[in-house]
Design a protein around this nucleic acid. Structure first.
Lengths: 335, 335
DNA sequence: CTGAAAGCGCTTACAG
DNA sequence: CTGAAAGCGCTTACAG
């Protein structure tokens, strides 16, 4: 049953004033070396730690940043959080996590909460619903409250804040182009996220690489059974030689359908998908995937935010960073 | 460029004292209905929100709880966090996330940080290194600082705090027993976590079900290549009819080895593994798995913590809860 | 029913 | 070099 000692108590023990103790602990040049030493010694002895809440009240800084995550069970976001956390630790900042569960109302609630000054800055990946309904007032509101804001991953919305994203279009364009360069003729695309901004960009990349509209072979549905039918058609009727998949669901489904129909990967079918490294490498055969470096997105996003908080960035000027993706070749694209 | 209005400013605008405003907003019976209405109206107009930092300083509560997570990329922990978050939201609490990366030094740092009273309570799953070295002083220290502490998931250590865990031994015992009851003869076990408390318990469950030592067929190694060799031996030489796997790594590896050697699942080999639902159902064939209900662990853990914080639990008395696991049958155990 | 005062634990401009 | 005082934004026992 221990209690944290306060400045006041320390001062009493030392027979000096609270101000002197405070200054000594902060290495103020106003205080003599001797006093500084005396104070620090006793402070260490009693394991004094400044009450962060009181410090925050004085400085009107909370020393914490808020992170809004659409879905933490998505390993992409879990890794982004990991990157954010690591950087925060370096900076001596705390991370408060908010999970929006892809819900706009929840996101609004969170944003509302954050206007009370509970955090010094916010990192947001907007929810699916927010993307669909294009309602950004709650985010703009944060900016008006002078709360530094950085958008990560889901950045294709037009509000003037710092952004850190992935070049989603380019990622699938390059993947598709690579298959073409290897002489693959029929390349299909499977997607369960065509209705999201993210999915649209990835599909656009695929189309850009193929150029000719007649070559587009797309299976799209957010309903798994429909997507299954469409993908089966691609594999069995159109007999595609390769499939690029825009997300976990479509990647795993394609893999499953191939297996069920004894279509051999990579001999009969190449696959490139979006999966985390652990999963992609552990599948059999392993699946070539597009690495997005989520930890890097987290840490770079945090960097942008810290600059903003410290006022290094000019107001009225925003930065947009793109983390380049990388196609990782595994067994599913062996030629 | 908006700024949060303070009680003082509100008081000036209303020509009443700060105390009156404060009491009115808190529906104090000391204040007349008329004044309460006037105050609330203006507060709403100016979107007044109490500065949480100041409130915390008065109440010496931070309104936040800390969660120490060994590894957020592990989807089990991500889901636990999700459960914690959901419950925290109900309780109006903030969640500060700390990732220990399975490191004891980092865990100590975090614990040290938390003694400053930055949080009202802590949920901890200890790191692997902490488990191995059995160093718990930093946790005991938290208790001595009167910071309510709840251990989740990794709970087999002897310190007197509330715990919320999984019955790891029973989970594999039941899984193994089920296979036996279906007439499966040779049941092997693959594990990459035999050196961890968790792994030991799961292995103990397997042994308990089999009873006879001569029947134990175990492939264990934390080095993937060694585990591969041992598991191959189990499959190709010992010709086991079923494999129970204690973790992601061993489950995926077994699956992969079976595939490489054209061993048909479930015809030639049944598999029961530890995987998240999404992955287990999306594999082809899908893998029967042991559901641990991580969200429930999170929310129940949070419940224990909240009770402790509110002082509903008697000091000196600790609760230990176990969340029952459930074997989910998918294609890999079709008979 | 309303307000002045003290105080939560700290920092800092100012005086001595 | 040290200390008294004011103040960060709030709450609450006490007086009127």
């Amino acid at each position: 049953m221990r209690n944290n000692i306060t400045l006041k108590e320390l001062a009493k023990l030392l027979n000096v004033s609270v101000s002197t103790v405070s200054k000594a602990l902060n290495d103020s040049p106003e205080i003599s070396q001797k006093t500084i030493e005396r104070v620090k010694e006793l402070a260490a002895l009693h394991k004094y730690r400044p009450n962060p809440v009181a410090v925050n009240l004085k400085s009107s800084k909370s020393g914490t940043i808020g992170v809004i995550i659409p879905n933490i069970s998505n390993s992409f976001f879990a890794k982004v959080l990991s990157g954010i956390e690591a950087k925060a630790q370096q900076e001596g900042l705390q991370v408060i996590t908010y999970i929006s569960n892809e819900s706009l109302p929840r996101e609004k609630e969170i944003a509302e909460l954050l206007t009370s000054g509970i955090v010094d800055g916010v990192l947001v990946a907007i929810s699916e619903e927010t993307q669909r309904k294009k309602e950004y007032d709650h985010l703009i509101n944060l900016v008006e409250y002078n709360i530094p804001l950085v958008l990560y991953d889901r950045t294709n919305l037009d509000i003037p804040v710092d952004k850190i994203g992935v070049d989603d279009e380019k990622s699938l364009e390059e993947a598709t182009a690579l298959l073409l360069s290897k002489g693959v003729k029929k390349i299909g695309l499977a997607t369960s996220i065509h209705h999201l901004g993210l999915g649209k960009l990835r599909i656009a990349g695929y189309k850009k690489a193929l150029r000719n509209e007649d070559d587009f072979l797309i299976a799209n549905s957010s309903r798994i059974e429909v997507l299954r039918e469409k993908t089966e058609k691609l594999l069995l009727e159109d007999k595609v030689d390769a499939l690029v998949c825009t997300d976990f669901e479509s990647t795993m489904l394609s893999y499953r359908i191939a297996h069920e129909n004894s279509i051999k990967i990579p001999q009969d079918l190449k696959i490139i998908g979006f999966l985390g490294k652990e999963l992609a490498t552990h599948l059999s055969p392993s699946i070539s995937y597009i690495e997005q470096f989520p930890e890097k997105i987290g840490s770079k996003g945090m960097e942008l935010l810290v600059k903003r908080i410290k006022g290094y960035t000019e107001t009225g000027q925003t930065t947009e960073k793109i983390i380049q993706t990388e196609l990782v070749h595994l067994e599913s694209t062996v030629f």
